[in-house]
Design a protein around this nucleic acid. Structure first.
Lengths: 351, 351
DNA sequence: TTGTAGGCGTTATCAC
DNA sequence: GTGATAACGCCTACAA
């Protein structure tokens, strides 16, 4: 019976729950929504009926009156295709998804493939089908955050938004992390240190390059463009970049790579070119993804807390939704260099 | 003014559209939903009003009456964490997302992290918050497809579902692809051919292993377990597996790897172990992902049409939703061996 | 072809 | 604390 009640299609409504509990729909609603103004008796009766009938509130009906969709959008602008080799996105998605699920919110994935689709997305979101939006992997000229914000849609960006747009964002201290990675290489006595960067129209990529230069400058070394190559955050790009660097600077002795997935490729290219790592060339990556601990040799890398950052993004977004204020807020997370064998440094206890 | 109309928050309803167009709400609705029973005049007037006001239908209101959510769920059971290095998932997600967007449907991403969350997911979906579900990356003992189907939720599975569950699914001919990859290695004169497989509780992984054995048997060669190692579909696992294989069979001369992302690692391990590819060891991967064309040497691989498959999954799912039948349907896509340098075969024109 | 009106399942605003 | 009752925005017979 309980069986049957829960079975196929039998949509059970609050009305039925209330009837079974011997109360009114109103009281039923109050129980469901955790209102304090309900007598213990009524609450118990309703809860029991809910369990018995397997009642789950109808989202559409609720949305209609609350004017909330209880779902938030995550936007990947998909010329992002090149990132498909990068686990970052799934880790990120996973972090956001978990944080949302905890609050009973839905994650709607939006992957506009073109400018046209991006416009449709904009109208769609502006129409109120989504309570707020998380943006990531933005490129330099993407007007999306500003446009959405202008339409009154709560927005939180992953990473400093391009063009200094006024938006809430959560970022990791990429520049500082890159600088400490590079400084670490220099501290090992490396003097011909190169870098493979991401797409420079992405703030995170740019920051990592700037951090690299910061460290060189701090050490009194010159900035030499022939030691810099764009890897584009793709594995293909990384391989190409590593080859180019080796060609131009055959005796380079250190490389800072702007992502672990690129670093893995760089490692491979170095090794097939006969370089020993770290003996001939020391390598440091960025992201400290699981794979870093398992390459040969294990990869030193800059860690940034993806989980914590995605949680914070959700927190900011929900706050912005609740408070109905649109004051942009920024949160910066520190990064941390994790030293392993690839950089020739003393491996720290953390594996 | 048109400006203002579209501005922040001004939710415009069908009522207003109708008023502006000088028709009734009913007629407005008909236009919006493309009913044929509307005079050209009325249609034009309504469409103009819609454009002027920037009207977008309220999904919640529509859902409430149509009893459809117009959103479908994509489920990644997330012990899938180990796949995070595999671009397959984003390509897949992208394929599904595109197919859905084309039809104005929403992609709701569901990533249950535990058995408990999976149960919540089940209740949630059964409550009708989602019109249908796409499942992927299932492991052998996952009861989810059956349970959802039992609750009357339209389901389509990516890959043959475990335990022979009665569900609609779309699959690639993994076994055939694996067999032809292996046969290709044998045709190059390789005789000590090993394989790195995925998690064997996943049908796709098992099929690839079986295909590998098929080819050996067909060539009259013995099946030797010491030439088989589980790589788990993770890059870490692949590296470990390759090391183990080399240890056990130092003179192996060919490897069939069950995914490209694992193959990339295998390539690296082989090369740092001093093996030349393909001279000493020929390698074939599976998936034919972008990276395959850019490794050194370029990786031969088995291609399966992710895009086409995800489109087909959406098609099947929508059909199942519309037709309200629950007859399981299966669609199998062929695979195709793409020969590049890593296997020592004659590279085919396709790069 | 068009307009009218009932109802989808909730929440919120009232009196009580 | 509780119970009516009016929205919420839309679709869809039904009538005209």
């Amino acid at each position: 019976m309980t069986q049957d009640d829960k079975a196929i299609g039998r949509r059970v409504t609050l009305e039925e729950v209330a009837r079974m509990a011997g109360v009114s729909r109103g009281t039923g609603s109050r129980v469901v929504n955790g209102s304090p103004k309900v007598s213990p008796d009524a609450r118990r009766a309703v809860e029991e009926a809910i369990a018995r009938l397997g009642y789950v509130p109808n989202r559409a009906a609720r949305s209609l009156v609350t004017r909330r969709s209880d779902s938030i959008g995550v936007v990947f602008p998909v010329p992002t295709a090149r990132f498909f080799g990068d686990p970052f996105f799934l880790l990120f998605l996973n972090g956001i998804g978990t944080a949302l699920a905890l609050r009973g919110l839905q994650l709607v994935l939006l992957m506009p493939q073109s400018g046209e689709e991006e416009q449709r997305l904009e109208r769609y979101v502006a129409a109120g089908h989504i309570d707020g939006v998380v943006l990531t992997a933005l490129h330099g000229d993407d007007p999306l955050p500003e446009r959405l914000a202008a339409r009154g849609v709560p927005v939180v960006v992953n990473g400093r938004p391009p063009r200094g747009a006024q938006a809430s964002y959560v970022d990791a201290d990429s520049r500082g992390g890159a600088a400490s990675a590079t400084a670490h290489l220099l501290a090992q006595g490396r003097r011909k240190v190169a870098t493979i960067s991401g797409s420079l129209d992405m703030p995170a990529a740019l920051d990592r390059l700037l951090g690299f230069r910061d460290a060189l400058e701090a050490a009194g070394l010159p900035i030499d463009p022939s030691f810099e190559e764009v890897g584009d955050f793709s594995q293909e790009g990384a391989a190409r970049a590593m080859h180019l660097l080796l060609e131009r600077q055959p005796d380079l002795d250190g490389v800072f790579v702007a992502s672990d997935s690129m670093a893995v490729m760089a490692l491979g290219v170095l090794q097939s070119a006969g370089r020993r790592v770290p003996d001939d060339v020391a390598v440091v990556g960025f992201d400290d993804q699981p794979i870093a601990g398992t390459t040969r040799p294990p990869l030193s890398s800059v860690r940034h807390p993806i989980e914590a950052m995605s949680r914070e993004m959700v927190r900011l977004l929900l706050h912005s939704i609740d408070a109905r204020d649109r004051l942009p807020r920024q949160v910066m997370f520190p990064t941390e260099l994790v030293v392993r064998e690839s950089s020739g440094g003393l491996p720290v206890k953390r594996s």
